[in-house]
Write a protein that binds this DNA or RNA. Structure first.
Length: 496
RNA sequence: GGGACCGUGGGUUAGUCUGGUAUACUUCGGGCCUUGGGUGCCCGUGACCGCGGUUCAAAUCCGCGCGGUCCCA
């Protein structure tokens, strides 16, 4: 390594995304100022720029939730053990990773308290109280909070941390159709947040029977493909049938005055979405963000000589003001102690989508030079219509990111019809391998044992509506693993 | 669930094998210089992950923790 390159690498990213994705990811998260490691293993400290990304997701989703009948609430972070035990499958599903509080002050507690791994078991009893008649339904509650799952496996900032931020929605409905409509509405909103806010295309489908949320009838998912070929579960929406309503006695008087049991759903999206965001678009220069979520959308870098300083700064500041007034998030980087090259590199590391370069040439010609972060495409626009021009460039940057991710997804769904073919394809290319499936968990196990890949989703024929929807039928009717009769399609992938 | 590697100022790093004053770059603070891709100079602050052991003496050797990364399941 030459002295020059060694020097130039110290401030920026030194790992390669394609060769060492794990270390590269950790370096981007830290050097782009998104998060630090906390003193306890598996926990992170989210820094202002990282938190701003989460807020961008929150703003979008929370707005859509509000438009579709959801009310926000907040429940305690502790759940008494006796509550947690009321739904057997929840207990069994989360038992190994529940953190417990056993002491308050200096005294042992009479009943230990679980730190919520999810809140069904404390929200449901209250919904049972609050729901009396069909007029109270549907009831849609959501909370933005953190949950704790004490996983022993290795952790990775945002992708897998013991405590993570998320939202969890919990709803009750008078009938099955209402619950299904709810499940699909939320899944659709998750899909939308990925595609329209994070510039990440997703696949939507349902999880196989054996991989459902504990106690659920059906678990639906949106899955995103990461550049290293692995799939991330981006958000889930569960139809809980009547099992939770029965366990917690959520019942209501129907129009016919008969007491009936409600149908419930729950749905959640966590800051794992940030992990997917960082992973998907960023590169060896650092973070890359779509303008929709970027805390700073536009960095203005003035370039001056002693005799041009005043006019360059004046011209730049006027543009910054105009853009800010138009609603853009702008940073005028007029630091005197840094040269432009340094600033370029720094804003690239931090993922600022669009850079405006303004020097004496631009001032003289009444222009602005614009550079796109993702591919460094450079353009020149007139000073006059700068607001519209910037708006247009930001849209184009978003499209570039989305299109690149969409192309990668399209190219990485492959078909296979035999076990060795499935594993060979996954091993060589990663991505998704589509195969007919008999529905037997043993067939997934056979693949899982050999290469840590699993069925991540089963595609759905229809968008849902008020029914469970139909899973896609396979073209051939032989299970790709065991050869038995197959009526379903499964997508295998390595996962995070 | 198994295996490997790693931990030295805020970041990167030399020193560890072979025990004896801890190296440099960068960031940061102050000053000078000045700007189209990480500019140069001067001054300053700042570190051996923790605990225990071996030893006259431990960043270095040993043990146990804690933390991080990777590979395989």
């Amino acid at each position: 390594m030459s002295e020059e390159s060694q020097e130039s690498q110290e401030l920026g990213i030194t790992e390669s995304k394609s060769h060492r994705p794990g270390e590269w990811y950790a370096e981007v998260v830290r050097k782009a100022g998104l998060a630090d490691y906390a003193p306890m293993g598996g926990f992170i400290v989210t820094k202002p720029r990282g938190y701003a990304l989460w807020e961008a997701i929150q703003d979008a989703l929370d707005g859509w939730f509000a438009e579709t009948g959801v009310d926000n609430v907040y429940f305690p972070m502790f759940i008494p053990e006796s509550f947690l035990e009321r739904e057997k499958e929840i207990v069994e599903g989360f038992d190994p990773e529940v953190a417990w509080v056993t002491q308050g002050g200096h005294d042992e507690l009479e009943e230990r308290l679980a730190v919520r791994p999810t809140s069904e078991s404390i929200i449901a009893p209250f919904m049972a109280d609050w729901v009396r008649s069909h007029r109270d339904l549907p009831m849609r509650l959501n909370q933005w909070c953190s949950v704790v799952r004490w996983e022993a496996t290795e952790t990775k900032p945002f992708f897998r941390t013991k405590e993570f931020l998320w939202q969890e929605g919990h709803t009750a409905h008078a009938d099955d159709a209402g619950a299904w409509a709810e499940v699909w509405t939320r899944l659709g909103q998750y899909e939308r947040v990925y595609e329209d806010v994070l510039a990440i295309p997703v696949l939507r489908g349902k999880k196989p029977e054996h991989d459902k949320f504990p106690g659920a009838d059906t678990t639906t998912t949106v899955e995103a493909l990461m550049p290293d070929g692995r799939s991330v579960q981006g958000g889930t929406s569960h139809h809980l049938g009547q099992s939770f309503a029965e366990a917690f006695d959520i019942s209501f008087a129907g129009e016919d005055e008969e007491e009936q049991t409600a149908y419930t759903t729950s749905w959640g999206l966590s800051w794992r979405a940030l992990g997917a965001l960082i992973m998907t678009h960023s590169d060896d220069q650092g973070l890359v963000l779509p303008p929709t979520v970027a805390p700073t959308q536009i960095a203005i870098v003035p370039i001056w000589q002693e005799d041009t300083q005043e006019e360059v700064l004046e011209y730049s500041a006027a543009i910054a003001d105009e853009l800010e007034e138009a609603g853009f998030r702008v940073e005028l980087d007029d630091r005197d102690e840094r040269n432009p090259g340094f600033k370029f590199n720094e804003h690239e590391l931090n993922g600022v989508p669009l850079r405006l370069e303004i020097g004496p040439y631009e001032v003289e010609d009444e222009e602005v030079t614009l550079v796109h972060r993702p591919d460094k495409e450079e353009g020149v626009e007139g000073r006059e219509g700068i607001v519209d021009a910037v708006d247009d460039h930001l849209d184009r940057i978003y499209d570039k990111l989305y299109d690149a991710a969409a192309e990668r997804l399209d190219d990485n769904v492959r078909e296979a019809h035999a076990p060795e073919d499935i594993m060979g394809t996954l091993g060589r290319h990663g991505g998704y391998v589509k195969t007919p499936w008999c529905g037997d968990e043993a067939c997934e196990e056979a693949i899982k044992e050999k290469m840590a890949a699993e069925i991540v989703l089963q595609p759905l024929e229809a968008e849902g509506g008020e029914t469970a929807g139909e899973v896609e039928k396979p073209e051939s009717e032989e299970c790709g693993v065991c050869g038995d009769h197959a009526e379903e399609v499964a997508y295998f992938a390595r996962t995070y």
